[in-house]
Every structure is written in structure tokens, then in C-alpha cells.
Amino acid sequence: MTARSDVMEDATQANNGTPPLSATLGGEQKRSVEQIALLLFITVPFLALVAAVPLAWGWGVSWLDLGLMVFFYFLGCHGITIGFHRHFTHGSFKAKRPLKIALAIAGSMAVEGPLVRWVADHRKHHKFSDAEGDPHSPWRFGETLPALIKGLWWAHIGWLFDEEQTPQDKYAPDLIKDPALRTVSRQFVLWTAVSLALPPLIGGLVTMSWWGAFTAFFWGSLVRVALLHHVTWSINSICHAVGKRPFKSRDRSGNVWWLAILSCGESWHNLHHADPTSARHGVERGQLDSSARLIRWFEQFGWAYDVRWPSRSRIDSRRNTDGNGSRRGKATADAA
């Protein structure tokens, strides 16, 4: 897109009452500097994750470092699952203004990209799920084993480097029109810095040492971000390639139980694609879904309302009846 076309498009959107694309962070193409920054934010935390095991064996890991890693992991994870995903993308519930802003900031601290871009990408994914147009389907290159291996890499990481981006004004106009959410999205770099700086700041102050700050940064910032990234990306790759499919969906989304805790309930992916606006994804007995539990608490506190909890009849109406699903458990209609 040329500079002239950018100006013309911005002017057209302004005339239509829609804020221009320049009001958000990132347009419809990734610039070289964004590609480089993305590469750094993927490789550096990943190297820390690889080094974590031998370093833990040699140094050990303190309870403070472990606590910081767990706290900031689940803060960012729930910011993504409850905020970016269930609330902003699918409208599974409505949130009072303070909660809405808090979820936008918490999701930004997961370091997975600006709010508006994240939501636009995910809405496009649901529109074309596992078909042509899906930004990150593992079946993109075919169904042979070599094609699937290539597709899994694409769905997990490769698609992030695709220069062509989802049109934000088409897939997330509601967020672009909201000044506060637009601001949080534009401040992604700021919230990334806050997310990475808080663990070493806390670690250094508690231990009153630079070493305490360093180890807190290693575990609470780098390892935490890398682990959260790969768990989130696994929903795009693993959960669209394997897993049980007890519910009817038009794609290959599956339930992967061993990712449930780390993904905060997102890996019950088959139900989500069968009923995208449901506030609860793990609807069978024993399917842990911490995101749904927190939404229930938000509702009880009066911070969330109009929550779309799945009824038993709604769940049963989406069950596979052709024998191609997996075992059928008794569904729970409650949120948690």
C-alpha cells in the first residue's frame, strides 16, 4: 500500500466516522522493523526457556522466582483468554468499563501483539477456520504427513511473519471506534515493557540485590513469556490437528486435555468452535476451565453481565451423533 493510498483510505474512513487505521498500532502490512522485533521477542524468550532446565539444575529456582513466573503467567494468560478472546473477540459477556480496560491491559502484558490486531486475526480465523483464508490452519498445505508437518510449523509460528495482515477496519471496527481500547492497543510497546520490567523490579526490591533482579527477569519475564507464547500457539497448531471431537464443528478443532491448565481452559477447543460465543469451553465434567471460573466471579461481583453460559440443551444440540466424535460425557450446564 502506498503512502498516497494510506492517506486516501484514512480520509475515507474519517468521512465515514471511523477512526483511520493510523489510529491503531500496525496497518495491513508488517514493516521490516516489526518483523525484526517479532523475531527477537520469539527467539530470546525461547532461548531462555531452553536454558531453564540446565540452569534450574545448576542454580535451583527460588520460591520468589517461581511465584513471579506463575503469577505473571496466569495474569497474561487470563488477559488473553478472558479479555482478548472470550470478551473482545466473541462477546461471551459484557464488562463494566474498569474491567474492560483491565482485561485489555492484562492481555497486552501477555506480549502477543496489540489488542486490535489480535482480535482481527482471530475473528478472521473463525470465519475461515481450517479453510482457505484462515491465517493459521495447520492444514494449509494439504493432508499428507510432510504437508501437515509444514502446516503445523506455519500454524504455530510461521504465520506470525506473514507480511499481509488482517484488515483491522473490517474485522475489528468496534474496537477501533472505542477511544480507550484504541489507546491500549497503540500502547502495546509500553505494556510489553511493563510486563518485562515488573518481575525484576519486584525481585530486586525483595532481595535487595542485582542477582535477585536478574533471576526474576530470567524466570518471571523471559521463561514466562516463552512458555505462554508456545501454549497459546499450540491452540492454533496442536488443537487443530489432534484431539477428541465430541461436538459438531465445520473444522478440525479438537479437545487436548493436557493443555487445559496451562491454556486456562482454551484447549477444550472443539466445543469453542462448535459454540464460539460460549463463556465456558470445558463443558464436560472434570474439564478444568479457570477462565470460566473467573468470569463467574466477575459476574457475582457485578463486574460482568449478560454472560453467555451454555445450557444443557444447547450443549447437547451440538453433540456429534455420527460416531465420528469421541466418548460422550455428561455435560454440566453450570459455569464452574
Rank of each mutant, 00 (worst) to 15 (best):
F218D: 00
N324S: 12
K100M: 11
E284H: 10
A3R: 11
Q187N: 15
T321D: 10
I80K: 02
G204Q: 05
G282W: 00
Q287E: 15
K30T: 02
I235D: 01
R318P: 02
H87T: 03
E163A: 07
E132W: 12
R224H: 15
A304R: 03
A95N: 06
E9I: 13
I80L: 15
G282V: 00
T166A: 13
I238T: 04
D178P: 04
G158D: 12
T89F: 07
E143N: 14
E112S: 14
G107K: 01
S326T: 11
D162Q: 10
A279S: 14
D174G: 10
N255S: 11
H281V: 05
F93M: 08
R296E: 11
P114M: 15
D65K: 04
A104Q: 01
R140P: 00
E164G: 13
K170D: 11
V206Y: 05
G158C: 10
L198F: 14
P19Q: 13
S326P: 04
N270C: 07
V223P: 00
S22I: 15
A3E: 14
V189R: 12
F214S: 14
R327P: 04
T192P: 01
Q187G: 12
F71L: 13
L55M: 12
R285K: 08
S311E: 08
A51R: 08
T81R: 02
E28W: 12
G67M: 06
S317I: 12
S129P: 03
R328L: 13
W153R: 14
Q300I: 15
L288G: 04
F93V: 10
R327D: 08
F188T: 01
S195R: 09
V50A: 13
K177D: 13
W139R: 15
W57M: 07
F93H: 04
G254F: 01
L64M: 09
K244S: 15
P20G: 09
F298S: 03
A23T: 06
T144H: 07
R319N: 03
R245E: 03
P20F: 05
G203M: 04
S313W: 08
K127V: 08
V184T: 09
W57D: 06
G282L: 03
A241P: 05
M69E: 00
H85N: 08
W219D: 00
A37D: 13
A172G: 13
F218V: 04
H126V: 11
I157S: 03
L47I: 07
D322P: 10
H240V: 05
L181C: 11
V223M: 03
F84D: 02
W118F: 11
L259V: 10
V70M: 10
W63M: 07
L25N: 03
L39V: 10
A155K: 02
S5R: 14
V189D: 11
T18N: 14
S253W: 01
F88Q: 00
G76R: 00
D65S: 15
A51K: 12
G329P: 02
F301S: 12
I149W: 15
G26L: 12
S221F: 04
F218L: 06
L39W: 15
Y171E: 08
A331I: 05
L55R: 14
D275I: 06
K96L: 09
V184C: 05
M8F: 09
F161S: 11
V33A: 11
A56Q: 06
P45S: 08
I82T: 07
